[in-house]
C-alpha cells in the first residue's frame, strides 16, 4: 500500500511541565522527519509549527508532567481527543526531576525560588500522565531515544506492537560487549533495575547507570541497593541516587523512602 492512497493519521504532540528535550528528539530525527511528515498529518506540534488542526487525533504524543490545576484539566481534554495516547519521557511517565517536590514541602521551593511566591499557583506534586488519564503506551527515557520514538510511530502506523523491551539496561550492555562496571571496577550501577533503551550509554563510558529510563519489569530494588551499600555507598547516597529523573516512579520512590531517615 503506497502512502498516498492511505488516509494519513493525525498526529498531535503535547507539552506539559518539561524541558522540551523529548520533543527535540523528534525534531532531531532529521533523516526521517520528511518521511514522518509524509506518513502522518502533523496536526498539532507547537514546538515545530504554529499551524494547528482541530482534533480528534489518531496519535497523541504527550511530553511533560502534571504540576498545576490548569494542566490537570488540559490532559483530560487531550485524552478525550486522542485515539491513542503515548506518554514520552521521564516527566510524562513518572513526574520527572520536578517530582523531587513530592518528597518535600513544595511551598519551601516556591519561597526559595520566586520573588513573588503569591503569583505561583501550583500543585503540591508533580505526577505522570498515567496518574490522571489512561495511557496506551509509555515511551521511557530522559530524554527518549529517537530511534525508539521512530519505532513507536512506525509500529502505530503498521498496527503492531512496538519493539521496546522492558528488560534491564544490562541486556544492551552485554550486547554491546561492555565489561560490567560493577563487577570490573566496583562502580554502583542502576542498570539491573532500569529499563533498556539508551543503548547502555553510561556503562559504555565507564559510569554506572543513572536510571534515566525508569524501572524495568520486575526490578529487585532491595537487593541491588544492598549491593550498593556493600560497595560503600552511604544511605543518603543510595536515596539520592534513586531521586533523579524518575524519582516518583513507584519502585524508585518506595526504595528511596526506605533509605530516608
Amino acid at each position: 500500500m503506497a502512502t498516498s492512497t492511505r488516509k494519513r493519521p493525525k498526529l498531535a504532540v503535547w507539552k506539559f511541565s518539561s524541558c522540551d528535550g523529548c520533543q527535540l528528539q523528534l525534531l532531531d530525527l532529521e533523516d526521517h522527519l520528511l518521511d514522518i511528515a509524509d506518513a502522518v498529518d502533523i496536526a498539532y506540534f507547537l514546538e515545530a509549527t504554529r499551524a494547528t488542526a482541530r482534533g480528534p487525533y489518531d496519535l497523541s504524543l504527550v511530553e511533560g508532567s502534571i504540576t498545576n490545576r490548569h494542566d490537570a484539566e488540559r490532559i483530560q481534554k487531550v485524552r478525550r481527543q486522542s485515539k491513542v495516547l503515548v506518554s514520552i519521557g521521564a516527566c510524562a511517565n513518572s513526574g520527572g526531576i520536578q517530582a523531587l517536590k513530592n518528597f518535600a514541602d513544595h511551598k519551601d521551593f516556591i519561597r526559595a525560588v520566586y520573588a513573588r511566591p503569591d503569583y505561583i499557583d501550583t500543585l503540591a506534586t508533580s505526577t505522570g500522565i498515567a496518574d490522571h488519564v489512561p495511557v496506551d503506551f509509555e515511551l521511557r527515557g530522559c530524554p527518549v531515544d529517537r530511534h525508539q520514538l521512530l519505532e513507536v510511530v512506525s509500529a502505530f502506523l503498521a498496527g503492531r506492537k512496538p519493539n521496546i523491551p522492558r528488560t534491564a539496561v544490562c541486556t544492551e550492555c552485554k550486547r554491546r560487549g561492555i565489561a560490567c562496571v560493577t563487577v570490573a571496577s566496583g562502580t554502583p550501577c542502576l542498570g539491573p533495575v532500569t529499563q533498556a533503551g539508551c543503548g547502555a550509554l553510561c556503562p559504555g563510558c565507564g559510569r554506572g547507570c543513572y536510571g534515566c529510563f525508569g524501572p524495568k519489569e520486575t526490578p529487585n530494588m532491595a537487593n541491588l541497593m544492598a549491593e550498593f551499600a556493600s560497595l560503600g555507598r552511604s544511605e543518603t547516597g543510595i536515596r539520592d541516587g534513586l531521586r533523579l529523573f524518575n524519582a516518583n516512579a513507584a519502585p524508585f520512590r518506595e526504595e528511596s523512602l526506605r533509605h530516608d531517615d
Partner: peptide, 27 residues
C-alpha cells in the same frame, strides 16, 4: 536475583534469541 540476564548473556553456551520485526514508516 536481579533478573538482569547477565549470567545468560555471559554464558558461552546460552543460545536463546528473539526475533523482532520492524517496518518502515510508509509500511
Amino acid at each position: 536475583c536481579l533478573s538482569c540476564g547477565n549470567c545468560t548473556n555471559q554464558c558461552p553456551t546460552c543460545f536463546c534469541s528473539n526475533t523482532e520485526d520492524v517496518t518502515s514508516l510508509d509500511g
